[in-house]
Design a protein around this nucleic acid. Structure first.
Lengths: 219, 219
DNA sequence: GTCTATAATATGATAGAC
DNA sequence: GTCTATCATATTATAGAC
């Protein structure tokens, strides 16, 4: 009986144990891919980090590229989340302020994911290009309409929504991808609660309020 | 006589020809390192791109890592330039506006350099860390004083100079490092003059003027 | 300075025992 | 499902002729 049943369904704990091991491998892969890229990370090193043999790794993921894609797809889910949370019903000050905090949290809690995403972009995103052109593009268009609505109602100064979004992305992700540089200069990381709050506060202040005092802006 | 003279000084054109070939190799290396990283790019591919044999490449650069360092060092020069240009004697609106334009130009004209720099940061900057902690840190401190001077004189609203600098770096570099994503969404690149101007203009407007209308800010 | 071997190793992936 | 070989290839680097 059990011999013709798929192994993953043979006993209750089997499927879960298998998935747990796959996840361990994915986690190890994220660590190494995010540091050395697809080519630069070796299956040997990934298997080692995951605590499994290289052959065993290849049993769960039939090729290096399949493993890479599997890791990337998990990241994309996490990555689109903050964007979806932008709410048209909130006033822009709250919505954008929230979004900034959410993204800085992501840079603090998912450094490796941010970096792997960045690596993939730098290399031309051969595996995500289509996903970007469809899924992400549609999401950006949707949120751009929200921003345009705010501008039309006078609650936001005129700005190109795309460039605003790029500025928010670039600024927040910088704290994950360039953490080494920031630490070399400021001597602190987002793991430090004070530095985290200062980061969120300064970005919010610059983006929402700008740098020039009102007297200058009346000219 | 000529046999004891270094080859590079034997005849007038020799040294120049040698340096020209080295530069061709460095250019090819930049192209491939910026796409695949130090480990991901092979000497074979670099030599091929440069139009020389792999053995010949290794004659000019004795190891892969030496070649990589040589490329990185050239980049660092270019990279610090815009920062130095920040002038305390200018009003902040002009100085920061200028800096933004300068950096976006860099993202347009030195895409590969920007990406290699980003790759190196992501990997923990093993080769630049010391340089960052000394040289760059000192430069940032110097310019932070300038920014603090503007704030003290009331020509700039209060902001942490470090976070302002990180925001400017992150925002402008994003257009080079994430060009694929931007093209997938906006369908345009900085090579398009209209898009370039719109980019500069929007960043300047957000950073200097902020997004909230004055009526909101009086609350 | 440039080339043809070639050494020495790392790496992705498979075969087959258990 | 997991392991021990092992293959096939790619890759950095060197030796030595010209």
């Amino acid at each position: 009986m059990t011999s013709i049943t798929p192994a993953t369904a043979a006993s209750p704990g089997r499927a879960a144990a298998s998935e747990a091991r796959k996840q361990r491998i994915r986690d190890a892969a994220l660590t190494l891919f995010s540091r050395f890229g697809l080519r630069g990370a070796s299956l040997d090193a990934i298997a080692d980090q995951a605590g499994v043999s290289k052959t065993n790794l290849l049993y769960y993921f039939p090729s290096k590229e399949k493993l890479y894609v599997s890791v990337l797809q998990q990241i994309l889910e996490t990555w689109l989340e903050p964007m979806r949370a932008i709410d048209a019903d909130q006033p822009p000050e709250a919505a954008i302020g929230h979004y900034i905090r959410f993204k800085v949290e992501l840079s603090r809690d998912h450094v490796q994911a941010s970096r792997l995403f960045c690596l993939e972009m730098i290399q031309g995103a051969p595996l995500l290009k289509e996903e970007l052109r469809n899924h992400l593009r549609a999401l950006v268009e949707e949120k751009s309409k929200v921003i345009e609505g705010w501008i039309a109602s006078g609650s936001l100064l005129p700005v190109d929504p795309h460039h605003l979004i790029y500025l928010l992305w670039g600024t927040t992700q910088h704290y994950a991808d360039f953490a080494v540089q920031i630490e070399a200069i400021s001597g602190r990381t987002l793991a430090d609660p004070d530095f985290f709050e200062a980061t969120v506060d300064n970005i919010q202040r610059i983006v929402l309020g700008g740098l020039l005092p009102r007297t200058n802006r009346d000219a």
